[in-house]
Design a protein around this nucleic acid. Structure first.
Lengths: 216, 216
DNA sequence: GTCTATAAAAAGATAGAC
DNA sequence: GTCTATCTTTTTATAGAC
């Protein structure tokens, strides 16, 4: 995170480039199956030089996780503070989540597959941040039920359906095809989920209009 | 699969037990991060004895994948042959899929995470079988649209929502808690999805009744 | 059938030359 | 900053004794 003292700005630039490449390789072969030498080869550095920039292999994994969680949690906090209906907030969060998935697809593969390979404090901290995000989703969904938008049911069950729908997208989406983007998928997912959660009584057009008003 | 000639029936029993244990360990630590020695230790065999039962580490992975795909594809084929409405077929397939997830949760972790570590023919064959299953889902959903149960849209988009909802369940479900079972989750998922896909016009009770009639 | 011993390769990480 | 050389451990897999 904070770079060692005595390094110029090019140090941090190269460090970020190394994390980029690690994320790409980890996403393709898995964290455990990717060697440090392979990362070095792809960056264009021998092992010794690579360790000048990184602390350890696990630390690369930590930074990749944070590149996912940072934008996710900051988006969640911003939406939480809006004076919008809970369904509009869910619609905005859906799009933010899918935006991260589209923009950092390789990071998401690592985020979804390899977080359990973290150890000690790294694992504890990362799990806490994951739960933090899920809590925001949960609060929006509970508010939507309490305000009469959705039928009252077990909140956990609704949270998990919402997350299932979004969090499995990384397995098949192809951002480079340009066929679908985050906004379109958010609209589609929310149409299905909100209609289902409300028993068909949801005014989708109104929700889209309200969400759009907050996107400027 | 076919056991080497000259072995008694206890050979195959122990072989299956080794695959059980491998699936458990792979699901907890990941395929690449689990060593052959660790598997031997858990089984209670030294490395040499272990290789008397297995061909290679990758072969263990192949067998685990097949333990998931075999019941999935045979269930899909059976449902396909029923003289039922496409929505009832989807409801039945949903329950079968969730049944496999509940009964072989450790296998599913490996199935979802580590299939890309297969090489050569193993990878090709396994990908083909995965696509086979998805084709069945696709055909049911297209039939449901053509028969007027669901609103007409891009089939791929409907398939992927259906699969997202189901295939991410392994991440959070806890069969040992007994709180939810496959039938309950299938009912819940299908209620959300079918209401969403139909725009709220679906008769859920009728679908449940029709599906139940086929379950004896 | 199960073991120990051994290969032969590759892993993560460090030291020190340049 | 980057390299090579080295350390230490671990990996999958085999050979051969018992």
């Amino acid at each position: 995170m904070a770079r060692p003292p005595g390094h110029g700005p090019s140090y941090e630039i190269k460090r970020q480039e190394i994390i980029d490449i690690a994320a790409k390789l980890f996403s393709e072969k898995g964290y455990a199956a990717t060697g440090i030498i392979e990362i070095g080869d792809t960056v264009g550095l021998a092992k010794g030089a690579l360790y000048y920039y990184i602390k350890s292999k696990e630390n690369l994994l930590v930074e990749i996780q944070e590149r996912v969680l940072d934008p996710l949690l900051s988006a969640a906090a911003k939406i939480q503070d809006l004076d919008a209906s809970p369904v509009a907030k869910l619609r905005l969060l859906s799009e933010e989540l899918l935006t991260v998935i589209f923009e950092r697809l390789d990071h998401i593969w690592v985020y979804e597959h390899d977080y359990r390979q973290l150890t000690g404090d790294n694992l504890t901290r990362m799990l806490a941040r994951r739960h933090e995000f899920e809590s925001v989703v949960r609060s929006f969904l509970i508010n939507a039920m309490d305000d009469g938008y959705f039928v009252q049911t077990n909140p956990s069950l609704v949270v998990l359906q919402f997350l299932n729908m979004h969090n499995h997208t990384y397995q098949w989406v192809r951002p480079e095809h340009g066929e679908w983007d985050a906004k379109f998928l958010a609209k589609t997912y929310c149409a299905t989920l909100f209609t289902g959660f409300s028993g068909g009584t949801c005014d989708l057009a109104a929700i889209e209009a309200e969400a759009a008003a907050y996107q400027g």
